[in-house]
Design a binder for these strands. Structure first.
Lengths: 206, 206
DNA sequence: ACCTGAACACCGTTCAAGT
DNA sequence: ACCTGAACACCGTTCAAGT
């Protein structure tokens, strides 16, 4: 019975790996947010001296980027099929599901400059859909960038609670914060957001 | 010749005021971002002991909220006139102008939970426009929340550079980063974003 | 090659002591 | 009432020294 366990669980017996570091960091971020992540705390969770991390990751910024890429790699743009409207809807649904799985990371990634990269599957997948929809090639990037920005705003506001807080405001009572028995729940908000983006794109198609 | 100067310039002779503190903090944020703002650095700029700040502001979170409110108070929703489409367009233009004046603060405010508040003129102004447009009262909040979230995403991506970086991607060359001589510049991106939001709202009006 | 302890230059915040 | 110095519990990161 040899104990080969490189389980990378919470304990420190596992060898230090780049991926293991990112995974542990992601767990901390999911639990307490990016603000609560520190190199020292991460090392503590891994059962390792804080300085050891610097042999695998150049600095904290690179650590966060690595975590983002780890999550981005999980996202596989849904296979095509159906109208481009259907494809866009499915794409948005899948992206949203991933955002809900790691809201703290998504909020940080969308807000930070240079964190969304052209290689990310979020971006390439959207560009593919727009191309198949018949958008002139030179318009795919600029139109796609605006659609991605708009939708990111929805995910961000949903993830940090702003969307829910504003949506629940009673019209007549400014500041009172009385939550209405909303005729629009979270699912409806999402549907409306996606329909709005589709309507915007339709206006740009031949 | 009495030196009554309470100029609140960069020098430390002025008395410590809540507003003076916020103003100095805003200057630091505009220059180097929220991440570079510290209580100690702020005190240094004000020519004051770091601990003195705590007699006027309970903590750093309250400081940031105060700075946000200072900027939010600068925003006066444009007077009505013209169609609701015109009003929405003007509202978005004014909001965007303010965001361009303080991009670092806007990025932080939109990303942070509990930073957008129902009392903010951004929100009340938008709700007014939607009400005047004839949206059923119970739908003003939920629809407005989605529109605000979407538009915030545009401002955020524009402010942190993501929008420009993605929009400049050449479709055929993924990852090469070659900037196209975009047939859509920054102004067009904004127009398309606003038109998209208007199209979404039109679908909800009687 | 990988790990580590000590050290440096920072943080936000508390608190007792001063005026 | 307002200010302050010292102190506490943290940070990210560098570097020389260990194996």
């Amino acid at each position: 019975m040899v104990t080969t366990g490189q389980a990378s669980g919470g304990r420190g017996d596992a060898r230090l790996t780049e991926k293991g570091i990112y995974t542990a960091a992601l767990r901390l971020i999911d639990a307490d947010g990016v603000g609560a992540l520190s190199m020292r705390k991460l090392a503590g969770v891994l059962g390792v001296n804080p300085m050891s991390l610097y042999h695998h990751v150049p600095n904290k910024a690179a650590l966060l980027r690595g975590v983002k890429n780890l999550v981005a790699a999980q996202f596989q743009p849904p296979v095509d099929g159906g109208s481009w409207q259907d494809q866009l809807h499915r794409f948005a649904t899948d992206f949203r599901a991933l955002a809900h799985r790691h809201p703290n990371l998504i909020v940080h990634s969308l807000a930070s400059p240079d964190f969304v990269e052209p290689e990310d599957p979020f971006w390439t997948g959207l560009a593919d859909i727009l191309t198949r929809a018949g958008l002139p090639p030179t318009q795919v990037a600029p139109i796609g960038a605006v659609l991605a920005s708009l939708f990111s705003g929805f995910l961000l506001a949903e993830s940090n609670g702003t969307l829910g807080r504003l949506a629940a405001m009673q019209p007549g009572a400014p500041g009172s914060g009385t939550p209405s028995n909303a005729d629009m729940d979270r699912a409806d908000s999402f549907q409306f957001a996606v329909q709005t983006l589709i309507a915007g794109l339709e206006a740009r198609l031949p």
